[in-house]
Amino acid sequence: MTALLNVRNLGVVYPDGGRRLRALDGIELALEAGEALGIVGESGSGKSTLARAILKLIAPTTGAIEWLGRDIAAFTAADLTRLRRDLTVVFQDPVASLDPRLSVADSIAEPLIVHAPALTAPQRSRRIDAMLEQVGLGSGYGARYPHELSGGQCQRVAIARAMITGPKLVVCDEPFSALDVSVQAQIVNLFAELRRETGTALLVISHNLALVRHLCSRVMVLYLGRVMEIAPAEDAFGAPLHPYTRLLLDAVPRLGHPPLALEAGESASPFEPPSGCVFRTRCRHAIGRCAVERPPLAAAGSTRAVACLRAGEGVARAARAG
């Protein structure tokens, strides 16, 4: 069976003046239908670039992105229209992602007008009302405007717009970061429910590990444009194999624990990534070999893969004491 989405050796380089910023380097990823994959990492890790490449908003420099087994770079206009129906997006800032001059119903209608032009106006508005109910807003919200809604409500509208065409995959770029804690929980539950009801796959980019753990079955950890670790969410966060995953976990504030004194500093510059393993400059376990050899993304058991020369030694397992 072909995967829904296959990312093969994907590289994206942004020219920036005289310098070249390698935003993504050798990304490999396969996503099955109905799966929920989380992508985590600090800013500069390339997670948003990956989302934009998958959405074909930017072109890859090397490698390929395959949708149902076919390279999207070779898509015809008709293929692309179908792709836009099957692969939709929810952005970070719910208010900015809605046109301030369109009513809620008009915003949700936009994709339908392109992808289901045969629908009559009453059929369309019935589908919009049903969608509004499904995202927990109620059809009464159709006539409202984005500025009359709260951030959480705007995010529900954006989700309704992404789901109205019955997509196979929804890419969510930091869908929680602009929301309040209690609203984040509501939106996580909504995504989980929609996924259960419709079988839509999710690709969730977020820096909030706890929310990713709740929503996603698998997680991919990125650092400076490379995959550090990919594993079922429960394993990655319960028993990480890569020291970078461990660092991210240790950074999460926990009730009843004083903050840890993390000495791992900030992300290295993506303009001059370190030789060998890009994480070695911040890694407590780095040895001489790490500066020379680029660790391959190697299978660790049947469900996980990790790019660390010392993963076998279990260096990332122990949580840091407070």
Partner: peptide
């Protein structure tokens, strides 16, 4: 702006994006 990117990602034709999203704003 994200709402324009959202329109592009929804596959709207350029003319529609210009007329419906860019011009009114």
């Amino acid at each position: 702006k994200e709402f324009i990117e959202a329109a592009v990602a929804a596959g709207l034709p350029v003319r529609r994006i210009l007329v419906r999203h860019v011009l009114p704003n």
